[in-house]
Write a protein that binds this DNA or RNA. Sequence first.
DNA 1: CGGTCCACCTGTCGGC
DNA 2: TGCCGACAGGTGGACC
Length: 327
Amino acid sequence: MPELPEVEVVRRGLVSWVRGRTITAVEVVDPRSVRRHALGPEDFAGNLEGARVLDVVRRGKFLWLPLTDSPADASAADPSCDADATPAPAVALMAHLGMSGQLLMQDSSVPDEKHLKVRLRLSTADGMPAELRFVDQRIFGGLFLTALIPTADGGPGGLAETPLPLIAEEAAHIARDPLDPCFSFDEFYRRLRTRRTGLKRALLDQGLVSGIGNIYADEALWQARLHFARPTDTLRRAEAARVLDAAREVMTDALAAGGTSFDSLYVNVNGASGYFDRSLNAYGREGQECRRCAAASLVSLIKRDQFMNRSSYSCPVCQPRPRNGRW
DNA sequence: CGGTCCACCTGTCGGC
DNA sequence: TGCCGACAGGTGGACC
């Protein structure tokens, strides 16, 4: 379910349950979910046991838990965007949810989920569930240990409560997301103009701007009235700002909607609830009336195209692809 | 080097 | 009923 808002909902939910607790036992139920840990499941488990969780940090759709011995203890870290810190090496438990991953806080008495892949037992804490479970149907996501390294752009940001001057090695290539206070539109636009590709492809490129997936890309394009195949090197500054603002708006709304489902014991990553069904204007609406055109007394139906081997939804009237090749 | 394609997985749904 | 293909919110590495 996870694009930026869903991952951020998970991060926010997780932090109050796991920060400061120690991982006492690790059970890798399906080794495929830790395949990105090159040294194998035993090494993964052995190195986690006894580690204390210091925080939950996000960059784009990547989520990680800095562990004991990380200089992250300096929680009064300056949230500046400058990179001038020289922190010591440290490790983190990295999580990516892929297409279907969930991180759930559960009591030990709760029966194993059908697709339970990894179980982390945590030190006892008053009123808190004993287990952090990684559940994943399609196994595109996973857990692994990674080094925390100094970063060129001032740390994870991404709405983390304590931005660290370190970033997980495996997320170092990920750009900041549009909701990140340190996100630079100027840099985004400069890099966008040098690309020779289609706009949606660029929006989905996590190295250019992070957090946007197939749903929010289509929604942002619809709201900005731009076509998914629009060549990036023809985009005017105002158009780029429009689509970025749209992405920011739709993801902010989704975040607000998702936050309410997260006040219980578990991280409910059921992104299909509430928001999506009601608020989407393009994604998944093939054959239905474009709401904007309908409001203008026009009739047009949302169409679906194959783009990048996945579906793209758009309105042929208000997001036109010009025939003469001029944008 | 940047852009594009495809493998990686399980499950569900609609058509025949 | 069952088989089969299409499709599903992502990513990295192989390939040009």
